[in-house]
Design a protein around this nucleic acid. Structure first.
Lengths: 113, 113
DNA sequence: CAACATACCTTACACCACAAGGTAACGAAA
DNA sequence: TTTCGTTACCTTGTGGTGTAAGGTATGTTG
């Protein structure tokens, strides 16, 4: 039985995670799914039905740009690249995450701090 | 202009945050709102319209139990207390959060490491 | 031939925060 | 008295999001 991550947690982390992965260079949907699993040590697994809408929204909002590419084997892939706008969003998402993380740690650490 | 936390982040953190606050003893809605603000150093602020449904769901699911109390000033409060079931949920939520947090940190730290 | 992996996409459904509204009582100020 | 701010709870309509389940297509392996 694999570890389950609640959907609210997936929703909260999907955008910063995708944007962050793309800071390492171009990538595409299927590969991103594998990187998420890798980065989490196998603890976090995303469904593809959740990722593709995320990528479409990010592209629609100008956070990333995509281009279609055919591999030598004949498979089509859509490679995405981070935009400046996306970099700014990533920074804000990261701040928000850290703020909440800090609050959670305070509450975990001391009861009533 | 106050710092805004995205709603997905609120959704992901509300349950563990409430459960965690209640490990410090009984509390009630209005006080929990203030504690969240305090624990985050003022960076995280919840709306009451979001918190009360959270408390109702937690009570419905047996994570917390509530009791009505009248203060000396004549105000009614609903005090909530953590159940054993809620403690278990808190532990699981915490694990899930840390798994995602670890993945995010990995992606932030090294690009594609 | 079948099965699996790669690689993308979409729809119906349930869930959840947000905004906005409501109810009610207290205390202080006008 | 009236008004305002605070305390303290609750509900509804709306929009956004993951899940589950389905689809399309190609290459590789058994």
């Amino acid at each position: 039985m694999k570890k389950r991550v609640y959907k609210e947690l997936v929703a909260a982390s999907s955008r910063p995670m995708v944007l962050s992965i793309l800071t390492g260079g171009e990538s595409y949907g299927y590969e991103i799914l594998k990187q998420v699993k890798l980065l989490s040590g196998g603890e976090v697994e995303w469904s593809d039905g959740m990722l593709y809408p995320v990528l479409h929204r990010l592209e629609r909002d100008g956070m990333i740009t995509g281009r279609w590419q055919l591999t030598e084997e004949g498979r089509r892939r859509k490679y995405y690249r981070l935009t400046d706008r996306g970099k700014g969003q990533l920074a804000r998402d990261r701040e928000g995450w850290m703020a909440v993380h800090g609050a959670l740690q305070s509450s975990w650490g001391g009861g009533r701090a």
